[in-house]
């Protein structure tokens, strides 16, 4: 799962630490824009062999590293169970 953290850090030139915790809202903090959001979703789908529903992409579930991790873990588990 640190692949996600690495991707975000490298792609958006940030470092998660005490001043920028993993539950920071990446939109509000100015880290993510539409271009970056599309890149992130493409990366996650490819890397974890998952597909996001439109509801997931258009809702509030992919705004922080913590939420992204949880969502990916849930989808990977669901795929394994399915």
């Amino acid at each position: 799962m640190d692949k996600i953290r690495d991707f975000i850090e490298n792609q958006f030139l940030i470092e998660f630490d005490d001043s920028f915790p993993e539950d920071s809202d990446l939109f509000k903090e100015g880290v993510m824009d539409s271009f970056g959001y599309v890149q992130l979703i493409r990366f996650l789908e490819q890397e974890f062999d998952i597909r996001f529903t439109e509801q997931e992409m258009t809702g509030d579930v992919l705004v922080s590293l913590v939420q992204i991790r949880e969502t990916v873990a849930r989808k990977v588990a669901a795929r394994a169970a399915g």
């Binding site: 939109f27 509000k28 824009d33 539409s34 271009f35 959001y37 599309v38 979703i41 439109e54 992409m57 258009t58 809702g59 509030d60 992919l62 705004v63």
Partner: peptide, 22 residues
Amino acid sequence: AHYGPKDIAAVTGLYHQFSAEK
């Protein structure tokens, strides 16, 4: 290019984040 039909859902998500005044 990145606003093509394939990615429109992602942009919709972005707009959703910015539909209320902050």
